[in-house]
Computed example of a mutant assay.
Amino acid sequence: MDRIKRLSYEVLAGHKSKFGEDFADNKKVLNQIAIVRSKGLKNEIAGYITNFLKKEMREEKAKQARIESSRTEEIQAEEIDVEITEPEASGEIIEIGVDTTVEETTETTEEKTE
Rank of each mutant, 00 (worst) to 15 (best):
S90I: 10
Y9H: 12
K42A: 00
G20W: 01
E114H: 03
D81L: 10
E114M: 02
R66Q: 13
T72S: 07
E111K: 11
L53E: 00
L30G: 01
T72Q: 13
I96R: 09
K16I: 04
F23N: 01
N26R: 02
M1P: 06
I67N: 14
E86P: 04
S17Y: 14
G97Y: 08
E68G: 06
E68N: 11
A62P: 03
A13L: 06
S8I: 01
N43V: 03
I35H: 15
L7D: 03
T109C: 04
Y48I: 00
K27N: 00
G40Y: 15
Q76K: 13
G14V: 03
L7Q: 11
M57T: 07
A77S: 11
Q64S: 09
E95D: 07
E95C: 04
S38T: 01
I35C: 08
E44P: 00
T108S: 10
E111C: 06
E95L: 09
Q32E: 13
A46K: 00
M1C: 02
V82I: 13
K18A: 02
D22K: 07
D2K: 10
M57E: 06
G14M: 04
I80H: 15
T50F: 00
T105S: 10
E79M: 07
V36E: 01
S8A: 14
G47E: 01
N51Q: 15
R66D: 06
E60S: 07
R37N: 10
E95G: 02
E10N: 13
I80L: 15
A65K: 08
F52K: 03
I80E: 14
G91M: 04
K55L: 07
A77W: 05
R71E: 12
R58M: 04
E68M: 08
Y48H: 09
S90E: 09
T108C: 02
T113M: 13
I80G: 07
K18C: 00
N31H: 13
T106V: 14
I93K: 14
V11P: 05
V98C: 05
I80K: 13
